[in-house]
């Protein structure tokens, strides 16, 4: 490959080589470091003295800040009200601010106004080792390799590599093996909803009657007996449901889901099919359900189909009916996995 010669294509900066034609150099010359400009404090003793006083003053500000912090710490308890907590936090914080900032400003001002302001130049040394050093290093490694005779002992080498590769498994296998608990990922496919389970209000657990819903009202629903399960939060994370009553005339239902609602009351999983946020912003006029995390919008009046946003699938519907006492109950679990998509969700 023919690269440009750096020395030719990119002239070195501090040389002014005459190009021979008319005595005009090919490059400009470095004018060198600009002359040092003395400061007021270098020239006038009064300015110097003033700067020193300012530094002392800034240190004094810091001392006062620290004292203020300590006074606030002992004399101003956070108390029980928002106002008293805010006051305590403000006074402590201002004390800390002055205590720290005072030191910083003092030291910097000192350095800027009183310490020697003349810039100095220092040579850089090439990082690359000299050729002799490199050769010596290579020689040393070669000698070492010879001493160990690793080149000639193939089986030994293989054994060592195998041992070193295998040994970490003693740590990795238990780590990976244990942290996933039972690894029963099929749990993603079902929730605790069962036939006949009552729909109850989140978080009070009050059962819901169909007559409790007026058109346009929404219940955030958990299954009956959620608190008695082994891990209520794990179950709740899958089982939360949004119960909505629409005017039955507004409702479009698929043929196979005709029996899943009751008199305009529909129940949909509250877990977004995108990445699992609770979808809960119900707009009762448009029947849109909006996810506050990524704005996926679902049409509750039409099978919770996606109208907008990053979700693809409709929210799973919970088939519901009414028991003898008028309470809303589930007909079964969801007929598909709730929540975000995963590789084997349809298997």
């Amino acid at each position: 490959m023919n690269q440009q010669n750096p020395a030719k294509g990119h002239p070195s900066q501090d040389l002014a080589a005459p190009d021979g034609q008319a005595g005009v150099p090919t490059h400009f010359t470095d004018p060198g470091h600009p002359e040092h400009q003395p400061r007021q404090s270098d020239l006038h003793p009064a300015a110097n003295k003033r700067a020193e006083r300012q530094v002392v003053l800034l240190f004094a500000v810091s001392v006062l800040g620290t004292i203020g912090f300590l006074v606030a710490y002992f004399a101003v308890p956070p108390g029980e009200t928002v106002a008293s907590m805010r006051q305590s936090n403000l006074l402590l914080g201002l004390g800390l601010f002055l205590g720290m900032f005072g030191i910083g400003a003092a030291v910097v001002h000192w350095a800027k106004s009183l310490m020697n302001s003349e810039e100095k130049a220092e040579d850089r040394h090439t990082l690359r080792s000299s050729d002799e050093t490199r050769a010596a290093a290579v020689e040393m490694l070669r000698e070492g390799a010879q001493d160990s005779a690793i080149g000639r002992r193939g089986v030994l080498k293989g054994a060592m590599v195998s041992a070193l590769l295998l040994a970490p498994l003693t740590v990795v296998v238990p780590l990976v093996g244990n942290v996933g608990e039972d690894w029963d990922v099929s749990k993603f496919k079902s929730t605790m909803w069962r036939k006949g389970m009552k729909l109850t209000i989140d978080p009070s657990g009050r059962p819901i009657k169909a007559s409790d819903l007026t058109i346009g009202s929404v219940f955030h629903v958990i299954p009956e007996g959620l608190e008695d399960t082994e891990h209520p939060l794990d179950e709740k994370a899958k089982a939360v449901v949004l119960l909505i009553r629409l005017d039955p005339r507004d409702l479009t239902e698929a043929e196979d889901r005709k029996g899943w609602s009751y008199d305009g009351i529909v129940a949909y999983s509250k877990i977004c099919t995108h990445v699992g946020c609770p979808v809960a912003l119900y707009e009762q006029q448009t029947h849109h359900l909006l996810c506050p995390c990524h704005q996926s919008t679902f049409d509750v009046a039409d099978g919770a189909k996606v109208l907008f946003g990053p979700a693809k699938r409709p929210l799973p519907q919970l088939p519901i009916e009414v028991d003898d006492e008028g309470y809303l109950i589930a007909q079964s679990d969801f007929t598909e996995p709730v929540g975000p998509s995963f590789w084997e969700r349809l298997k």
């Binding site: 914080g93 201002l94 601010f97 400003a105 910097v108 000192w110 020697n116």
Partner: peptide
């Protein structure tokens, strides 16, 4: 030493101070 140490060291206290001011208010 001393100028860069003073400026950089002083700047630590300035950064701490500014964070404290934010946390206070």
């Amino acid at each position: 030493f001393p100028i860069y140490a003073a400026k950089a060291g002083g700047f630590f206290f300035i950064v701490f101070g500014v964070i404290a001011l934010m946390a206070a208010t």
